[in-house]
Every structure is written in structure tokens, then in C-alpha cells.
Amino acid sequence: MSVLIYIDQAEGQIKKSSFEAASYGAKLAEQTGTTAEALVLGNVSDDLSALGKYGIKKVHHVADAQLDHLDAQLFIKVIAEAAAASQADIIVLSANVNGKAIAPGLSARLKSGLVAGAVALPDTSNGFVVKKGVFSGKAFANIRINSPIKIISLTPNAFTPVLGEGVAEVAPFTATIEAPKVKVTATNKVKGQIPLSEAELVISGGRGLKGPENWGMIEELAQLLGAATACSRAVADAHWRPHHEHVGQTGGSIAPNLYFAVGISGAIQHLAGVNRSKTIVVINKDPEAPFFKAADYGIVGDAFEVMPKIIEAVKKLKGK
């Protein structure tokens, strides 16, 4: 028996969300008295033995260039093969963009129950029950998996990795690789920015900022803190900011450690995308803005007066 953790990578580098999955899987192996093994697909530049620090004992690596880009169908077959070879009774992966493409098909292929978007370790005291977010962050559901093999996809930024000293054994794994049917022809990444889905700190602006020309203060604060930038739907719809920055019910859903909202009223649809953030700060001149009810810290004031002072204080703190 083992816990098999699928480690997702992009351009040869393991994603932050997969380190979280590795550590979660290792904790789960400890909890169920088995060992944690990892599966890495495609060519990687990272040192895979370092996954040992996250509690992984053994890394199975399929270094085939056909696996450098995602074809969900192909990845599912390879993961299913590795799961059989390592006699995994639990499979863990991140519920990141690729995990959302892979986990459901894997569940259907193995006829094994999936909890998509887990937020905590399973309760194994009586069966196998996993907690996940439902109703767009407004509630949680505890889901029982009834099949012998269990599959969990872990919400990014919901589990803090625990680091130790271990070194993982890395072994090549030979899998049947069919030609991918989905061919990736282009990858366009926003250069020099922290991906919103992986960011721990997020600075976000809304219509209260009056126009795209006023985003300098959002960007400056984000840069000082190493934060990503986000925006409300109204802002994305008005093309003040690119669509990938839109968070909320119909945009991205994020759970950073800090969500710092400037000039956003906090309609229920916006909250649905950000209410899992650990700390919410709201700056709004309207004391009746609904966002204050969901916030941890707030300032009722004019962003144009308050933000420059905040930026100065952060600069002082950072010694800049």
C-alpha cells in the first residue's frame, strides 16, 4: 500500500501547489501507516530527490518529452499505471489547472471516488471522509469515499507544507506512452508576474479606483510586497485590467494568505472568489460596503489619500 502523489510541473519546474500536495500526501501516508511515493511526468530541471524534504520516500519519474505538456487522457493512463505498480490505495494531486483536468478522468478510469478541492487531511477514524469547499466558498462539505482506492485533489494554498530532512530515492518509471491527441502549440505567460493562483499575497482593485490610469498604487504596493494583482469583474469588463486578473464568481477563485481589496464594494459574487483568503483587508470610502462584513481589517477612507501613506509605511518597513 502507498499514497501516490502526482507532481505537476511547468517548463521543467515543480509547481508550488504540487509541493503542497506532496507534503499533504506524506502526512496522509503517516496517518494511514503507508509510504508516500511521487510520480513526475516529463522532463524536469528540479532535483527530484529534494521531494524527500516534503516526506516523499520514492519518486517515479517518466522522463518522456511527450509528457512535457498536458494531454489529460494520456496523463490519466500513465498515472493509473504508476498507481497499480506502486499499489497505491490513495492518490493525491493538486486541484490546480492540470489537476482539474486529470483527477476526474482518473476517478472514472479507476472507478475510484474523488474529492475535488480538499481543504484538510481526511478523517480516517471511521472510514474515509474528506472536507472540501462547496457553494463557492460559502460552506464546506464532508464527503465520504466508498471505493477501495481514494483520490483527493487538494485546493492550492489550503495546506502549508511541512519541511523535513529526507532525501527521496529517484527511479525511472517505464509507462506505455501513446501519442498525445491534444497538441500544445503555444504557451503565453504574463512575464515577470506572480501567477494569481499561486500568490500568497494579492492586492486587488475595483471600480472605486475610477480608471486604469490609477492602478500605479496597486502595482507599486504589490511589487513592494511580492504580491500578485487582481481586480473585480466591473474592472475586467471595462477592460481597465486583463481578464485573467478578474476574481469572483465568474472569474478566478483564490485563497491567498492576504487579499487586500481597494475600492471594491464586495458583492456576494465577488466574495465567492475570495472568501477563502486567510486575511482580508478592505479599503473603501463607503462604510456600508458589504465587504467590511467579510473583512479582518479595514479602513473607511478615500483610497487616493490612504494608499500613498500605506505604500510609504511599507517602504519604510522594507527599508526602501
Partner: peptide, 16 residues
């Protein structure tokens, strides 16, 4: 030809 979201950007893929 399908454009899909990836972390920090997008990816274009072709499939029959």
C-alpha cells in the same frame, strides 16, 4: 483550436 487557462497565462492546443 482551444485556448485554456494555465498558471499565470494561457496555452493554445489543437485536437481533432
Amino acid at each position: 483550436t482551444i485556448t485554456r487557462e494555465i498558471e499565470g497565462g494561457e496555452e493554445v492546443a489543437e485536437v481533432n
